[in-house]
Design a protein around this nucleic acid. Structure first.
Lengths: 164, 164
DNA sequence: AGTGAAATCACCCAAAAGTATGAGTGATAT
DNA sequence: ATATCACTCATACTTTTGGGTGATTTCACT
């Protein structure tokens, strides 16, 4: 996820851009002089020169940003399968997992009691908090586990080793 | 991630680009003529003109693609972990237990799907029966398992080896 | 002192789950 | 034949669950 090309781009601009300009201008002037001395003077020669220069430098202007500009980022999510073993009964909540999922202590407690088959009201009684609080913890838990129902939360929680 | 601007860009290129070029060239030529007649001839006037033109058209070349082209895309791959658990594919429910509990085949199927986190409606779709039927099976199942909720049924079902 | 996360709780609304009851069908056993 | 049972489905009703919003407090960290 590192995007540290700006320094690179600045370097190119400071070092190479004037050089390119110099080369291009020199080439153009040389071409003009060469044409002047090699051939008879052409009608509207000035306009032709100007047109040619315009075209060449427009092309240069188009080409430069394409090469130098940093691309926009496109995010692609790839699902990586992680296999876990069956948990032993006296499993201690995986602190790493909980942290990674951003699940708080209270949320985990609610999940744990849910998995034991308690209703929200029963969980509220058990934790000495209101039913609303349990529901809030539940909702946040479902968001973090990316599930829709308590049964899914239980199932996923077990698979991830969050609960025994 | 929709990028459907190419038609738009083509239209601009076909209609507006030649116009811009015409205007720019006319302005340049006018400027040159004006300078020619207003002031004394300057040393290296041609080179100055050419430099000015080069600058202007380079700027034009830079500005045009920025406005018109679709941005370059760089793909950033984010790995999202999906937690799976190798499950006994041919898990055989404890027939003895099922018989002892008087749980029918259909009721067991409902229990099994419940334990996977499915809603009653999803179970109904899966089994090609109506939502009411699933509810009936569920109610009967709860009676036989002596539980009040699906979460309790899941918990008890696992403990009794009815489901994997 | 200010910021931010966690925890608490309320209110409202909608959806899902669960209960109760009745009823029709087909297969099977008595 | 008929009684039983699993399965199906419906209607009506209640409870539980879940989503969204917003408020308050506490506590740690800056």
């Amino acid at each position: 996820m590192k995007i540290a090309k700006s320094d690179h781009i600045k370097t190119i601009f400071k070092n190479k851009l004037p050089l390119l300009y110099g080369i291009a201008l020199a080439a153009i002037l040389f071409l003009i002089k060469w044409l002047e001395y090699q051939f008879v003077i052409i009608d509207h020669a000035l306009e032709i020169y100007i047109g040619a220069i315009a075209l060449i430098f427009t092309a240069l202007g188009i080409w430069l940003p394409l090469k130098l500009s940093k691309p926009k980022l496109q995010t692609v999510v790839i699902e990586k399968e992680v296999y876990l073993q069956k948990q032993d009964p006296d499993y201690v909540p995986d602190e790493q997992q909980l942290l990674k999922m951003g699940i708080s202590r209270r949320e985990w407690e609610v999940l744990s009691l849910m998995s034991q088959g308690l209703s929200n009201q029963e969980i509220a009684n058990q934790l000495y908090v209101s039913l609303n609080t349990v529901k809030t913890h539940g909702s946040n838990l479902f968001l973090k586990l990316e599930v829709k129902r308590r049964t899914q939360a239980i199932e996923k929680g077990k698979r991830m080793g969050l609960i025994g």
